[in-house]
Design a protein around this nucleic acid. Structure first.
Length: 895
RNA sequence: GGGCAAUUAGCUCAGUUGGUUAGAGCGCCUCGUUGACAUCGAGGAGGUCACUGGUUCGAAUCCAGUAUUGCCCACCA
């Protein structure tokens, strides 16, 4: 016999091992079944899983288990990401802290540092693997991938080379975001802005006044820019020159007129620093102006700054202001200026724009053949969404996506860090040599050195849906082309494009967009059909959970230990809608733990009942139940409701409406199965139905709560059945859909509810005699057939069921679903109120009826709307008509 | 500056194409240990669906505007 409470701790690990050993997670590329594929967004190989991962794993596991149960060949492919900058910075910090080495890159060298990082990563990967298992994830571990695996590296090199040959990858001196702390470039998307209060200076610059918060960049400023339409500067012409006193003596300045200037801001004119500012750089490019570097890559001033050379930015700033003040060129200082400073998404260090030679992907060059047209990467990215090849859930993110693409600039893909995919470019002698080789492998001959730079981590992540499906054995064969690799890899042929990409909306641009870009280009196919974006999990107060504040952090592992993985999964799925943030706190999780336990006890009850009746649950045949002729009203009603549940759950899951479906099952199990059916079974039990319904519930719930359902399945499964996760999903049996039984059963429920309510309202003693008055013979028959149940659940010692029209003094308190229940009470009934209520109800119904009639009378509607909608309206009409009739009858009684 | 959302019970949130009396969980109040479950059961209170207009027989739902909050994007020196 099962224990009184469910103990997830004692169950989950055992069940998971059982699944793994059974091979049920493994997908078969050679099967004939329809494929269903999910690529797991690879967690960064830097440490711990957090709730964001947990929600992702829960969602994807539900998708996968459901697809599997629908008879599809389901593949959920797990893996980890090398997370270039993030990982390197974590390890460098660790070495600095633990070993006291201030600059590990310099001290250890490339080879040694990479070795250290690799070691760290492999430990971290083990942690992640075990955490993913703890969540119950049914992913195919035999196919686990890592972004630095040789076969994935091969794909990276192939794509880079192909892009280079197509002229999509180019090398150029461009302004990039330089992170002096991490000593690398970062992409536009890896930047965040933090508000900072700064001093805002106004300086005299020749005849002009300019404003800046960054005086230290102003050494090279020999251009002053203003708007061509600005009346204040009408007398100056573009190209005019003048001499003026500046930081280090006299300079010759040139006037530039350009429309980027905002006349409203500051003094309406500014000097520019093309080397250290994106806008200034663009402007300088347009007007072909000189660019000079002021700040070096360490964040210190260069010799151009004379006596300030070698100073760090912050120090130089104050000194320069002092100097300009002494020269009388400082006009004013605003100490309360708030501006936004760019910092690196990872290292949180201030980002300094710099001009550097970098590798870029051209997003505007129309060289991609897509749908028989030549398109640019940008255009393909727009087309796949616009044409509906890829659907984004929720769809409002499509707008956000388009907006992002409109603003997309060429993508800088080279990074000056060591951890990652090294760029497949070789230089003869040194980097500045003119001889260069771009290819998948190193060129023949001596003296070739590979470019020291690595690729942006999103370059390889962009290939994730398909590079993971390339056969590693083939990847070693360099006689094969990229196309060969795709054509010959069975997994790729079977499982790509993937079915759904599920991830947080916060990486829509970082990753989802890049996958679309890279995959359409490299394979000619979309990477996935549907994008499902989940929201962030926040604290009870709506704050972001952050590592720096352990109080607010909820560690999924702690929760699993305390409440079980099933409860955690439900608490993150039910009540959440895609794309919206949600809050999580322990009471919520405890609520779902209670639900899980409720299911446990319901099963216990079923098993105990079977034992009492001498029935072996394993021998119950589902089919027989469905054909049985000895079903009670409750059995029929309940089986009918179950069929509708199956239908709703299935269509809901097909449409990715996970929250709604979770709620449906929850309320069915608790509100119907436990509260009614099991209670009724205490009077008279049909074990066949009990077992059958319980099995179906376990099957339906399995994608959400895999552990407990699997555990319970073992106790109730048919003898010839395997483990639950290999079962096919239940199908609704139309023959069991019995509206009459359902309606009649609702009447019983109504009566019992009424009795309970009356008892509570009037403190009715247990065993009090009750009279139930009904108006028709049919109702009386229904109640009569369930007399025992009503008496038991209503706790009555005597019950009269009578058919008669009512006199005023007898009409009592409750009208429920067409049945009137009353007990003899002295003077508590308000007839006028009752009458008014019914009259209003009738009026509403009549209004409603009129509306539908006019709708159905409208030819336009009938001809244009889908047939189902029209029938639905007709049904509504009939229902309403019937109800009005009944109301009229009741009103007549009251008269 | 532009865009996207949110606003529903004390709290956290559902509410699929407009449809009959707006739902759930938690919390609160009353009662209850008859053998599945106190991680429970029965009953109850609590909402002008942010506000103002409009479309409609009918609006939480569609449209316009207002307010508050949040997020994203952008070159304001």
């Amino acid at each position: 016999m099962l224990p009184k409470t469910y103990d997830p701790q004692a169950t989950e690990d055992r069940i998971y091992s059982m699944w793994e050993e059974s091979g049920a997670f493994k997908a078969d590329a050679s099967s004939d079944k329809e494929p269903f594929t999910v690529s797991m967004p690879p967690p960064n190989a830097t440490g711990q899983l957090h709730l964001g991962h947990a929600v992702m794993l829960a969602l994807e596991d539900i998708f996968t288990r459901f697809a599997r149960a629908q008879g599809k060949e389901a593949l959920w492919l797990p893996g980890t990401d090398h997370a270039a900058i993030a990982t390197e910075s974590v390890v460098i910090k660790k070495i600095q802290k633990e070993e006291g080495i201030p600059d590990p890159r310099a001290s250890l060298g490339r080879e040694e540092l990479i070795k250290r990082i690799a070691h760290f990563v492999s430990e971290s990967q083990d942690t992640i693997r075990s955490q993913v298992r703890k969540m119950g994830s049914s992913c195919d571990w035999s196919r686990e991938k890592y972004t630095l695996d040789p076969s994935l590296n091969r794909c990276v090199n192939e794509v880079f080379t192909k892009m280079y040959k197509d002229g999509l990858i180019y090398r150029g001196h461009r302004i990039v975001n330089w992170d002096p702390k991490m000593q690398t470039t970062v992409s536009d998307d890896e930047i965040e802005y933090v508000e900072e209060k700064a001093s805002f200076y106004t300086f005299q610059y020749g005849p002009f006044q300019i404003v800046t918060s960054r005086p230290e960049t102003k050494f090279g400023d020999k251009y002053v820019v203003m708007h061509p339409d600005d009346p204040r500067y009408e007398k100056y012409e573009n190209g005019d020159q003048f001499e003026c006193e500046w930081i280090n003596g006299k300079i010759t300045a040139t006037i530039i007129k350009d429309k980027v200037i905002d006349m409203e801001f500051g003094t309406g004119c500014m000097t520019i620093t093309p080397w250290h500012d994106h806008v200034d750089f663009d402007l300088a490019e347009r007007h072909e102006l000189d660019k000079e570097q002021i700040i070096d890559f360490e964040g210190k001033l260069l010799p151009i700054a004379n006596e300030f050379a070698g100073m760090p930015i912050e120090e130089a700033r104050t000194k320069i202001v002092e100097k300009l003040d002494k020269k009388g060129l400082l006009v004013s200082v605003d100490e309360n200026y708030v501006h936004r400073v760019a910092v690196s998404y990872r290292g949180k260090g201030k980002v300094e724009p710099q001009i550097k030679e970098q590798w870029f992907i051209d997003v505007n060059k129309p060289v991609i053949e897509w749908k028989k047209k030549n398109m640019s990467l940008k255009e393909v990215m727009q087309d796949v969404i616009r044409s509906g090849d890829i659907k984004i859930i929720p769809d409002r993110f499509e707008k956000v996506y388009f907006h992002w693409i409109d603003n997309l600039r060429d993508w800088c893909v080279s990074r000056q860090i060591w951890w990652g995919h090294r760029i497949p470019v070789w230089h003869k002698e040194d980097k500045d040599s003119k001889e260069m080789h771009v290819g998948v492998q190193a060129p023949e001959g001596k003296g070739w050195e590979q470019d020291p730079d690595t690729l942006d981590t999103w370059f390889s992540s962009g290939l994730w849906t398909w590079s993971t499906l390339i056969d590693p054995a083939l990847a070693d064969d360099h006689s094969l082309s990229l196309q060969d690799l795709l054509d010959k890899s069975h997994d790729f042929q079977k499982f790509h494009p993937t079915s759904v990409m599920e991830t947080g909306y916060d990486i829509l641009f970082f990753w989802v967009a890049r996958m679309i870009l890279m995959t359409t280009y490299a394979t000619g196919k979309i990477p996935f059909e549907t994008v499902y974006l989940h929201g962030l999990i926040r604290t009870r107060d709506g704050a972001k959970m952050s590592k720096s504040d352990p109080e607010t952090m909820i560690d999924p592992l702690d929760i699993i230990e305390k409440y079980g993985a099933d409860a955690l999964r439900l608490s993150m799925i039910v009540g959440q809608s895609p794309g919206n943030d949600s809050r999580l706190f322990e009471e919520k999780i405890a609520g779902y733990r209670n639900f899980v336990n409720k299911l446990w006890n319901a099963s216990r009850f079923v098993l105990m009942t079977c034992e009492k009746e001498g029935i072996n649950p394993h021998e119950v045949e589902g089919r027989k139940v469905e054909k049985s002729k000895s079903l009670s009203l409750a059995d029929k009603a309940f089986l009918s409701e179950l069929q509708f549940l199956i239908q709703d759950v299935t269509t809901g899951l097909e449409q990715y409406r996970l929250s709604e479906v979770g709620e449906l099952i929850y309320s069915f199990v608790w509100g119907n199965f436990c509260d009614w059916y099991l209670e009724l079974s205490k009077g008279q039990a049909n074990c066949d139905v009990l077992v059958h319904v319980l099995r179906t519930i376990l099957q339906l719930l399995h994608p959400y709560c895999p552990f407990i359902t699997e555990e319970l399945w073992a106790s109730v499964k048919p003898d010839d059945c395997n483990i639950l996760m290999k079962q096919l999903y239940p199908k609704a049996n139309k023959k069991l859909m019995d509206h009459d039984a359902y309606d009649n059963f609702q009447k019983i429920i109504g009566v019992i509810t009424a009795i309970r309510s009356i008892r509570a309202d009037h403190g009715l003693d247990q065993g009090k005699k009750l009279e139930v008055i009904v108006h028709t013979k049919e109702h009386s028959d229904v109640l009569e057939s369930q007399r025992d149940q009503i008496m038991r659940l209503g706790r009555l010692s005597e019950l009269t069921i009578d058919v008669k029209p009512q006199t005023h003094e007898h009409v009592a308190s409750m009208f429920l679903r067409g049945i009137e229940v009353h007990i003899p009470l002295e003077g508590v009934i308000d007839f006028e109120k009752e009458k008014a209520k019914l009259t209003k109800e009738k009026e509403n119904l009549e209004k409603f009826l009129k509306g539908i009639q006019s709708k159905l009378g409208n030819k336009k509607f009938v001809s244009s709307a889908p047939e189902e909608v029209v029938t639905l309206e007709r049904e509504k009409l009939e229902n309403a008509q019937e109800k009005i009739k009944k109301l009229e009858e009741r009103l007549k009684v009251l008269e």
